[in-house]
Amino acid sequence: MNASFASALTASHEAAASQHYPQGALYVVATPIGNLADITLRALHVLQLADTIACEDTRHTQSLLRAYGIDRSPQQLLALHQHNEAEAAQSALARLRAGQRIAYVSDAGTPAISDPGARLVAAVRAEGLPVVPLPGASSVTTALSVAGIVNDDVTGFVFAGFLPAKSSERSAAVQSLAGEPRAVVLLEAPHRIEPLAAALAALGDRPLTIGRELTKQFEEIATVKAAEFSAWLTAEANRTRGEFVLVLHPAPVADGTGDTEGLRILRLLLAELPLKTAVKLAADISGSSRNTLYDAALALKQLSKT
Score class of each variant (00 low, 15 high):
Arg59Ile: 08
Asn151Lys: 11
Pro190Ile: 04
Ala222Thr: 13
Ser288Gly: 10
His81Ser: 13
Pro133Gly: 12
Asn291Ser: 09
Lys166Val: 03
Thr292Pro: 00
Gln302Ala: 12
Leu298Ile: 12
Thr277Gly: 01
Ala92Met: 02
Asp205Asn: 14
Leu303Tyr: 08
Gly148Pro: 07
Ile210Asn: 07
Leu129Gln: 05
Arg95Leu: 14
Glu228Asn: 08
Leu47Asp: 03
Thr306Phe: 06
Leu9Phe: 01
Lys301Pro: 03
Leu177Ser: 05
Ile265Lys: 00
Thr155His: 15
Arg170Asn: 02
Ala222Met: 11
Gly256Asp: 15
Ala79Asp: 10
Glu169Thr: 08
Glu127Asp: 04
Pro74Gly: 14
Lys276Asn: 14
Ala103Thr: 06
Leu203Ala: 03
Gly204His: 09
Asp38Asn: 09
Thr292Val: 02
Ser304Ile: 01
Ala296Phe: 02
His249Ile: 07
Glu243Met: 06
Trp232Val: 09
Ser286Arg: 00
Ala183Pro: 06
Ile265Asn: 01
Arg212Ile: 12
Leu303Ser: 02
Gly242Ile: 09
Thr61Pro: 02
Ala235Pro: 09
Leu300Ala: 01
Ala126Gly: 06
Ala6Arg: 00
Val184Asn: 11
Asp205Tyr: 06
Ala143Leu: 15
Tyr21Phe: 15
Ser73Arg: 11
Leu163Gly: 09
Val46Thr: 05
Lys280Trp: 02
Ala15Ser: 12
Pro195Ala: 13
Leu26Pro: 04
Leu186Tyr: 07
Tyr294Met: 00
Leu270Glu: 03
Glu127Trp: 03
Lys166Asp: 12
Arg264Gln: 10
Leu300Arg: 02
Val184Pro: 06
Ala89Asn: 07
Ile113Asn: 00
Gly109Val: 10
Ile149Pro: 11
Gln19Tyr: 13
Ala94Gln: 15
Ala25His: 08
Arg239Lys: 10
Ala296Thr: 04
Pro135Leu: 13
Leu303Cys: 07
Trp232Tyr: 13
Leu268Glu: 10
Asp71Leu: 11
Leu163Phe: 06
Gln175Lys: 13
Arg95Ala: 15
Arg66Thr: 04
Val150Phe: 05
Phe157Asn: 14
His13Lys: 12
Ala98Thr: 02
Leu44Lys: 03
Pro32Ser: 04
Ser7Lys: 01
Thr277Glu: 08
Gly242Thr: 06
Arg42Gly: 12
Ala15His: 14
Thr141Ala: 12
Pro116Ala: 15
Arg119Thr: 15
Ala202Asp: 04
Leu248Trp: 01
Ala199Cys: 08
Thr234Ala: 10
Glu220Ile: 07
Glu169Gly: 00
Pro116Lys: 09
Ala30Lys: 05
Ala88Met: 10
Val245Ala: 15
Asp295Gln: 09
Leu300Phe: 07
Thr110Phe: 10
Ala202Met: 08
Arg125Gln: 08
Pro22Asp: 09
Ser4Val: 09
Ala16Met: 15
Gln82Ala: 15
Thr40Asp: 05
Gln302Trp: 03
Ala222Cys: 06
Ala143His: 14
Glu261Lys: 00
Val154Ile: 14
Gly179Tyr: 02
Gly109Met: 11
Glu85Cys: 10
Glu272Lys: 09
Asp205Met: 01
Thr292Gly: 12
Ser18Leu: 07
Leu200Cys: 04
His20Pro: 01
Glu14Pro: 03
Ile285Ala: 05
Phe159Asp: 11
Ser18His: 15
Leu36Met: 13
Val184Thr: 15
Arg264Asn: 02
Ser171Thr: 12
Gln23Lys: 14
Ala92His: 05
Ala86Glu: 11
